[in-house]
Design a protein around this nucleic acid. Structure first.
Lengths: 134, 134
DNA sequence: AATACTATTAGGAATGGTTCCTATTCCTAA
DNA sequence: TTAGGAATAGGAACCATTCCTAATAGTATT
């Protein structure tokens, strides 16, 4: 492990939430000011491929990298765009009942209005919600 | 509706599966040889925003557009990339048991190896599967 | 400590999918 | 038959990511 790799790994493993490569780079540069984005990407993907961290690929914004915790699902606030972790327990078993082939993995995103956004304003017309994610 | 719009709409609504903008363009050009990709995108997104077709945004490849407006889930073959529709019955109710906020919508993609790909070759090392989608 | 070899890096170019911009064309109604 | 607005073609711009390459750092061997 190089110094930069160690730094990147610690940044991800000490973070609570989802970090983009860009955000990781900012922190890496506190100790390695010349570090480049491609180095961050390369190493993040190395860790992800090795199963040490998790990469969350998103259609509508940059990928997120996060600590490898339990496999989990995501909730996406349709108002502020914030992503939160959650775990729907027993979901894989539930899916297996209906899906006859072996499941490699699955990705679930629940679109909702988070409590903060819900508190701020009256509930909105659900048809106004555009651009669902996958 | 312009001729091109009619053409695009019919191409999507007559297709069985999921089409990318590029694939739509190829068919549009059979009748409108000068049609451009931006026109296809613009109109596909207009239809999607109007709720007439469904846009499936993917992290790892081009977006797909499809005619099926019923809420449904998708299975994605990690070998050939083909997307198929499926419906996991009762999934929303299942999610509601664990998720305490009102659910606007959700997106589920199951990554698997489709029967055709599974038949061709020996089953593979599941750790070799990279690039999950969201 | 000099050498050689390998792995890693910085930096930027290239890529792919999508959106944006703008001048031109097409409709439509008066 | 002309004026206004909408839609188009074409390509530039955009963003996140990957790829390329020369330079550098690390390691092992002598």
């Amino acid at each position: 492990m190089t110094q930069i790799q160690t730094s990147i790994y610690h940044i991800i493993s000490q973070s609570n939430g989802h970090m983009t490569a860009e955000q990781v780079l900012l922190l890496v540069r506190q100790t390695h000011p010349t570090a480049s984005l491609s180095t961050v990407y390369r190493n993040l993907n190395l860790f992800a491929d090795a199963g040490q961290i998790r990469r969350i690929q998103r259609a509508t914004s940059a990928d997120y990298y996060e600590r490898n915790l339990q496999p989990h699902d995501h909730a996406h606030c349709v108002k502020c765009g914030k992503m939160s972790d959650l775990t729907i327990t027993g979901l894989k078993d539930f899916l297996r009942k209906d899906f006859q082939y072996p499941i490699c993995s699955f990705e679930l995103v629940i679109n909702y209005v988070c409590p903060e956004c819900a508190g701020k304003q009256a509930p909105k017309d659900p048809t106004a919600i555009k651009g669902g994610m996958l």
